[in-house]
Amino acid sequence: MIEVYVDGASAGNPGPSGAGVFIKAEGSVIRSSLPLGTLTNHEAEFEALIHALTLCIDKQFRTISVRTDSQLVSSAVDGRYVKNKGYQPYLIRCLALVDQFDLCFIKWIPSSKNKMADELARKAIKQNK
């Protein structure tokens, strides 16, 4: 199974933001840092997941296990519901991508277990223009 670690970060809330994605796939590793412009931290977390899912679809991975340190994102996607209607468009985009996989798990992990994705997200913040 493909292991996917995602993290979104913001320098301010809202502020310059970035997405970090770290994928362990069949003996190889994929690292991605994506500058996101000005977003809130939660928006950056959703965008990081969207970026990761898109990468996995592009690589034609069919079964993935996603790990995030965002409890909001993991519970929203897992429960297919978000209380804050401002995040609804993000959830809709995430679910449309999740539904393209044969199997897609999403799991919350503590920040201490998500260091590589966090580093990539922080790198992406610095890439904002």
Rank of each mutant, 00 (worst) to 15 (best):
P14F: 08
I2V: 15
V21L: 02
C56N: 08
S28E: 14
I30Q: 04
H42A: 07
G12I: 03
L34M: 11
S70I: 00
G18T: 10
E3H: 15
T63E: 15
K129T: 09
L36F: 10
S32M: 10
S32N: 06
V21I: 15
A121V: 04
G15N: 05
R122P: 00
F101Q: 08
V77C: 05
E45R: 03
D118M: 04
P16G: 02
V29T: 15
R31S: 13
S33N: 09
E45H: 07
S65F: 01
P35I: 12
R67W: 12
T38I: 15
S65V: 02
Q100D: 03
V29F: 13
S65L: 03
S28Q: 13
S111A: 14
H42K: 03
N41Y: 07
T54W: 05
L97K: 14
R122M: 06
G8S: 08
Q60F: 06
V21W: 00
G37H: 06
I125N: 08
E45L: 05
D69Q: 09
K85S: 13
C56A: 15
D102K: 11
I92C: 01
F105K: 11
N84E: 14
Q127L: 15
R62L: 12
K115S: 11
A96W: 02
N128Q: 09
V82N: 00
G79R: 14
T38S: 09
E26M: 04
Q71D: 11
K113W: 02
S111C: 03
R62F: 03
I30R: 10
F61R: 03
C104G: 03
P110H: 09
I50S: 09
D58Y: 07
H42M: 03
G20L: 01
V29Y: 13
I2L: 12
R31W: 00
P89D: 09
V4F: 03
D118P: 04
A19C: 08
D69S: 03
V21P: 00
A11Y: 09
L103I: 06
Q127F: 12
K126W: 01
Y90G: 02
I2F: 12
V66T: 12
T40N: 07
